[in-house]
Amino acid sequence: MNLIRKILFPFAILYGFITSIRNFLFDKRILKSTSFDIPVIAVGNLSVGGTGKTPQIEYLIRLLSDKYKIATLSRGYKRKSEGFVLADLTSNAEILGDEPFQFYQKFPNIQVAVDANRTNGIKQLLSQKNRPEIILLDDAYQHRKVKAGFYILLTAFDDLYADDFMLPTGNLRESRSGADRANIVVVTKCPKNLSDEKQEEIRLKLKLNCSQQIYFTFIDYDDAVYNEEEKIAVNEIISETKLLLAGIAKPKPFYDYLKNENDECLTFPDHHHFSETDLNNIQNKAQNKKIITTEKDYVRLKDARGISKLYYLPIKISFISHKQNFDTTILEYVKGDS
């Protein structure tokens, strides 16, 4: 924790007090939460950024979309549109935001919508002729004006909410007690070989109640990189000199998976909008070499002027154990609430 964050500790106490009062008012139904007559699953975290919400949403889409009509609803962070937007053939990352546009491109059989007002967004989705049967709320754990039927809380293995502090001293959006609302807690970005003993240590640290389930997942990188024309195996490209580019919260594992000693890494802030200056800088550093980026950055860069030889590395989450239990819990909730 740096000195400035330590100095701001009194503000963290104040922020924690304000968010606790807000949660108390929602818990006591003094502030209104709206529930809906279809299954609504909210995925989110207590901290800001970097817990793996996008691959978790994609996992749920794959689990559910063969049997149900699915819609995702996101805020559309840093998009240049306003209000409710339902993705269509005219949509792009600037209109939807990078992650919703990624959902739209990867899963053409689902509806993808954005609206900062999640209550209005759900109402708009339910008014569509092709009404969804399940809505997945992306990054909506603190959006308490909607009462979801099921909550999945994510926390990163190397940045557990139990070890964190309130903003601005730490990265928590609300106090650790907010975890009590979760039906399931998923510890993300774990080592693949995480021991049973370490899992038990984390369970105890998070202090979950007896009704809550906990799962441990890791990021599973694809064995190839892609663009719209071709696929190249990672083991073929790993020794080639290339430019690695990432605009995500925690890019180190991405770099570690692909990097050799001659590669250059170019890092931008999470959800970065690439300016003309950025694009020129990327071209100058690439010098006609292949550019490998994240899937989220690819949807923003693939049509950018002058950017060539651009590829992305897909990721997904995999469960260390008890995957079937997780799937069954979700499917039973959906069936019971349908």
Rank of each mutant, 00 (worst) to 15 (best):
T51W: 00
L64G: 11
E58L: 02
I41E: 13
K53R: 02
K67V: 06
S47W: 05
L46Q: 15
L60E: 03
N45Q: 12
K69M: 06
V43W: 01
L63Q: 05
G52L: 07
E58Y: 00
E58K: 05
Q56S: 13
G44D: 13
I41G: 11
I70A: 04
A42G: 12
G44Q: 14
V48I: 14
R62L: 09
L63W: 03
R62G: 01
L63A: 07
I57V: 14
N45W: 07
T54M: 09
G49F: 09
P55Y: 11
G50E: 08
Y68P: 05
T51I: 03
A71C: 08
P55D: 12
N45F: 09
G44S: 11
I41W: 11
G52R: 03
S65E: 12
N45K: 12
P55N: 11
Y68H: 15
Q56L: 11
Q56C: 15
A71F: 01
S47D: 08
Y59H: 06
S65F: 04
L63G: 07
V48C: 11
A71H: 03
S65G: 04
Y68N: 14
G49T: 04
I61V: 13
I70F: 07
T54C: 02
D66W: 07
G49C: 09
K69A: 11
A71N: 04
L60A: 09
S47A: 13
V48W: 10
I57T: 04
L64Y: 03
V43A: 03
I57R: 00
G44L: 10
L46M: 08
L64M: 04
I57W: 00
D66P: 10
P55L: 07
I61R: 08
V48S: 07
I57S: 00
Y59I: 02
L63Y: 02
S47Y: 05
T51A: 06
T54D: 03
G49W: 06
L64C: 10
K69R: 15
I57G: 00
V43R: 03
Y59Q: 03
Y68C: 04
L46E: 14
V48Y: 15
Y68G: 04
K67P: 01
P55R: 05
L64K: 06
Q56N: 11
G49D: 13
G50D: 11
T51L: 01
S47F: 05
L60S: 10
Y68I: 07
V48L: 15
G50R: 01
L46Y: 13
G49S: 07
I61W: 02
P55H: 08
S47T: 15
Y68D: 10
P55K: 09
G49V: 03
I61F: 03
G52D: 12
A71I: 02
L63M: 05
N45D: 14
R62P: 01
K53D: 14
N45R: 10
V48F: 04
L64S: 06
I61Y: 04
T51Y: 00
S65R: 15
I41S: 12
V48T: 15
K67H: 05
T54R: 01
T51V: 12
R62A: 09
K69S: 14
I70Y: 06
L63C: 02
I57F: 00
V48Q: 11
V43F: 01
K53V: 12
P55F: 07
A42Q: 05
L60P: 02
Q56A: 14
G52P: 08
S65K: 15
Q56T: 15
L46V: 10
S65Q: 13
L64H: 05
K53F: 09
Y68M: 07
E58Q: 10
L63N: 01
